Computed example of a mutant assay.
Amino acid sequence: MNSSSRPADLTGRWHQAVRYFRMSVPAHTPLRPGLGGRTLGGPVTTTEGGPAWLRVMSSPRPEGKLWDGAVLADDLLDDAVPHPALLAVHTWQDAGAAFQAHVWEQLTGSVLSPTPDLTSASPPAVTAGWWRDLRAGTAGIRRTPVPPGREVVTQAYIGRIHRFVPGLAGVELTARRWETAHGDLHWANLTRDPFQIIDWEGWGAAPEGYDAAVLHAYALPAPGIAAKVREVFADVLTGETGRLAELVVAAQVIQAADRDEPHARLRPHVRRHAARLIQHIQRSASARHSTRR
Rank of each mutant, 00 (worst) to 15 (best):
H83S: 14
E172T: 00
G49D: 08
P7H: 07
D193T: 13
V171N: 02
E231L: 15
G109M: 08
K228N: 12
G50T: 11
W53C: 02
S5H: 15
W187Y: 00
G42R: 00
A85M: 07
A73I: 07
R22L: 08
D133Q: 14
A227Y: 06
A226Y: 11
T180R: 02
L173Q: 09
R267M: 07
D199A: 05
F233H: 10
G137R: 00
E172P: 11
I158A: 03
H269F: 14
R276G: 15
A213P: 15
V248W: 03
N2L: 03
M57A: 13
G170K: 08
R163G: 09
T46Y: 01
L86A: 05
E179W: 03
A101T: 03
D75A: 14
D133E: 15
A169L: 01
D75M: 13
P82N: 03
G149K: 11
V18H: 06
G170F: 07
I158M: 08
L31A: 04
A73G: 15
S120A: 15
E172G: 15
P124Y: 04
T115L: 06
W187Q: 03
T39G: 07
P26D: 09
G50E: 05
H263K: 12
V44S: 00
Q196S: 13
W104P: 03
E231F: 11
G202R: 06
A257C: 14
S120N: 13
I197F: 08
S4W: 03
D9Q: 13
R22I: 09
A285K: 12
A212W: 12
R176S: 11
R293K: 12
L185S: 11
E231R: 08
A205P: 02
W178F: 06
A156W: 09
A256F: 03
H216P: 07
T91C: 15
E201L: 01
L215K: 05
V18R: 01
P82R: 07
W53H: 10
G42F: 07
L86W: 09
G167W: 09
Q16A: 05
A274V: 10
V152Q: 06
T29L: 05
H15C: 00
R6W: 14
L190W: 05
V248P: 03
D117V: 05
R32Y: 12
R230W: 04
